[in-house]
Design a protein around this nucleic acid. Structure first.
Length: 111
DNA sequence: CTTTTGACGGGGG
DNA sequence: TCCCCCGCCAAAA
């Protein structure tokens, strides 16, 4: 059992993979769940490496405003939006219109 | 080793 | 309501 230096990254991936189909979560919610509340940036930075992990539905992670802030990191600008809409998430431009309906907080609902 | 970055969040103007 | 600034902390250069 060895401690890997990217432990934070790993934790983020695990939580993101727990996001149910048709649901989304925010960077801050994940950060808070990991005990890194306030360090939401770390979650975003961690997801920067999530592209190497196809099991990590990074497209289900948006900022607190329900905006697809990370869409630019996907293959295409519409990739993230496309996948969210495919799961029943209503996306208008770069924002989730039914954000409150599909929002999933790991520290609240997963608990 | 130091410095910059980075897909955020919240507060203030 | 929109725009700007600060704080958070780990990873990469």
């Amino acid at each position: 059992m060895k401690k890997e230096k990217g432990q934070f990254f790993k934790d983020v991936y695990e939580v993101v993979k727990l996001v149910p189909y048709g649901r989304v979560t925010s960077y801050g919610a994940i950060a808070r769940y990991l005990g890194a509340s306030g360090s939401a940036r770390m979650v975003g930075w961690a997801l920067n490496g999530a592209g190497k992990y196809p099991s990590v539905p990074a497209h289900r992670v948006v900022n607190s405003k329900g905006i697809l802030s990370g869409r630019a990191h996907f293959g295409s600008s519409d990739e993230m939006k496309n996948q969210l809409e495919a799961e029943g998430v209503k996306v208008k431009g770069d924002k989730i219109t039914n954000f409150a309906e599909c929002f999933w907080d790991p520290g609240t609902e997963l608990l």
